[in-house]
Design a protein around this nucleic acid. Structure first.
Lengths: 236, 236
DNA sequence: TTATGCCAAATTGTCAACAATCGACGATCA
DNA sequence: TGATCGTCGATTGTTGACAATTTGGCATAA
């Protein structure tokens, strides 16, 4: 009958995500932080936020826990919570680990790169170029993350995707702070040409070098300024 | 005066860890799961646990969230929570990502391997050998994790350590389940000889191969049995 | 017999009040 | 004047009660 293949994944008929309050709160709070509506270092009190969102402190706390886990917030027991401020060293770590993970992701995908993968890579690059041309920095940050995220999605490696998500939030936090402090990040239009070429090529070692180089170029701004010095002794 | 050097780190006079209830609960619950006192797939109800630990559901929930984050628990809203059951694919992912991370860790440490590092590596291997001779599987699991954990600690790379912790919990869960199902894991006494030799050698490429091989040997048991098939559609 | 609708028990989600802790300010005393 | 100690306001930690949701079984009707 017509429903014999209801389980086809491409129809998007998987489980509907349950919407709990904490999920919504986490989403909005994350967006607010990454948009820079709340500056790094700014204190976030549970009571203030709970009234602002018009929810009780319970779900709010759980949402904050999640953002803490993602590296966006820092809390010290009985004292307070504030938006994470990345140190220069933190940014270095983000980029170095990111290099390792992205190379690993390509190793996983390498033999399985099909037309769909190639097409999607080009598509996301087009989207990035369009957002750059439009001068919309916020969108172009998302577009660049989407571009680099493709290989992680394509890997089908759930743990790897998880690690990437953990990194992505921190990266976004850094880019957002950097953008606020220096205006346009100003990625050149051709910044990903060699990356894509290597990603679709046949020389895995060349891609390894290209990724390492790509990250190095991205991380140099590190030295100029980051969102602030991280405080010492912060811990969950 | 006598207290002039109170800040000497070797005295262990650093900040006392704040003890919040959720931290204690998380610790004990984690221990109970990894010890196998609660079998994979077994349901964990908040009310039951809260009475068992004699705390309210608030801190208990937060502790459970943390274990969910660590991959030890799985929950579906409004329905229930159970101990995670790893699939064969999950175990494969754990080992493959672990390989990549451990190699990356060694790359970070490589130029900074000093006598202290070498000594500690030998010390932890001795501890592993002792626990194997003693036939104490539980201790030897901890000893093996400690041995492999050294390079992550030595790297000084906080994000990397974080990723390792995320992996370690899942690995421990797998080992514990495997041990319960098959008795002794039975690592041979010499299982880490070549690993340590390569780790202290001068050929980084050789170490890369050795780690990949070491993980392959560790992951073969995967095919025989894991703690159970994971359910589909589980998500936080 | 099969499908449908409904009910009830169990479980998690949410809330508002209370307790514990921290950091800073100011009083107190040498 | 300087340091020390107590106090106070603010913030997070914890609790117990209540609400929302899900699941499975059962009655019912086609």
């Amino acid at each position: 009958m017509a429903f014999s293949d209801l389980s086809r994944p491409e129809l998007g008929l998987g489980p509907v995500p349950k919407a709990t309050l904490r999920a919504h709160i986490a989403e909005r709070l994350r967006a607010a932080i990454l948009a820079g509506d709340i500056a790094p270092g700014a204190p976030l009190t549970e009571t203030a936020l709970s009234t602002r969102f018009n929810v009780s402190r319970g779900p709010l706390r759980e949402a904050m826990r999640q953002l803490i886990e993602e590296g966006l917030l820092v809390t010290v027991p009985y004292t307070g919570t504030h938006v994470a401020a990345l140190s220069v060293e933190d940014v270095r770590e983000i980029y170095s680990l990111r290099t390792a993970l992205e190379i690993f992701a390509f190793e996983q995908v390498w033999e399985h790169r099909d037309d769909r993968f190639r097409l999607e890579l080009h598509r996301r690059n087009e989207a990035l170029l369009a957002s750059i041309d439009a001068g919309d920095d916020r969108t172009s940050i998302g577009a660049e993350l989407a571009l680099h995220g493709l290989v992680f999605e394509a890997s089908g490696h759930k743990l790897l995707q998880r690690a990437w998500h953990g990194l992505r939030g921190r990266l976004q936090l850094y880019w957002a702070a950097h953008h606020r402090a220096h205006g346009m990040r100003g990625p050149r239009r051709d910044s990903h040409d060699s990356y894509i070429k290597a990603a679709l090529g046949s020389d895995l070692d060349a891609l390894r070098l290209e990724i390492a180089d790509h990250m190095r170029r991205g991380a140099v701004v590190t030295e100029k300024f980051v969102s602030g010095e991280s405080r010492k002794g912060d811990k969950t």
